[in-house]
Nucleic acid binder design. Structure first.
Lengths: 153, 153
DNA sequence: GTATAATGAAAGTCAGAGAAAGTCAGATGT
DNA sequence: ACATCTGACTTTCTCTGACTTTCATTATAC
């Protein structure tokens, strides 16, 4: 929507695509371009370009400082998947699942319909009959299992 | 007669028709337009745009937040799917799921990868933590939910 | 000439304000 | 009785500004 954060996020992601997954920006410059306070840039980065969304961010302060954003290179989807699978713990909230699934689509590991299927399977609605205290546990097992099934194909 | 909820319901459904089954609204804006409290919108949505009436509702809070309503696509692959969905009972063994999934692939309703995702999600392995007596029940809910999600896009 | 101090130009942090939507119990209407 | 409506309160997300930290460059001291 008209959220500044979303606009900046898209701007940076487009930039990343153009630059093959690695950009360097100046915080103040970007803030001026989008007519906001510099710390807004930090907000966008810390909410949208986190480590577990597949980004690596570095920065340098002082004169001529800058922020560099790199996207993990996942040319081998299988490796990435295995990495994720092992990183998934034993409990996953519906919300955390969403984050994972969105990443997978961002990285073209799964298609839109596949994402809907996964969301549908993992939703609280589908799992309503599973006792609360087991639900996040079941979700973790399901997500792992589903991701596994993709590495085989 | 002419209850506000009905008026808002009709308004939203007209909007859905105009927008090919998918709208985004702002709760407060709508409340102002109909001169009611914002929570009235929640009431309308929760009573009229439920999942089993064929709608998907999502929302985002915070500045620039919104509510999005999508209608299942009942005409395309929909009729057949809806038929299938209603044919699925309340209990499904892993084996029965297999049969369904194989049928879906045979009739080109789902692709190969989609089938493996579904098998993975519905397998006994993924659902091992779900108590035995609930498992077939959960499976039915999951399969229905997954098939539903396909009718949207 | 080298070492240190001062200056300025970045980026970082964090708490708080603001802007939505969600919840729920109770009042009201039919 | 049941559906509808309201308002107070909660939660989540976004945005801002004051203040801090870090770095590079330039000026000063020896």
């Amino acid at each position: 929507m008209a959220r500044l954060s979303d606009i900046i996020e898209i701007f940076l992601k487009d930039m990343l695509n153009d630059m093959h997954g690695s950009v360097e920006i100046q915080r103040n410059e970007l803030a001026i371009r989008f007519n906001c306070v510099p710390s807004q840039i930090n907000y966008v980065i810390s909410t949208r370009f986190t480590n577990d969304k597949g980004y690596y961010v570095e920065s340098r302060r002082g004169g001529g400082g800058c922020i560099s954003i790199r996207r993990f290179n996942i040319d081998c989807a299988g490796d990435y998947l295995m990495h994720i699978i092992s990183a998934i713990g034993d409990n996953l909230s519906q919300h955390t699942c969403e984050v994972f699934i969105n990443n997978f689509t961002d990285y073209d590991i799964i298609a839109g319909r596949e994402a809907s299927l996964m969301r549908a399977a993992l939703s609280d609605k589908a799992l309503v009959e599973v006792p609360m205290e087991k639900r996040d546990n079941v979700r973790a097992a399901m997500l792992k299992n589903m991701m596994m099934s993709l590495t085989v194909l």
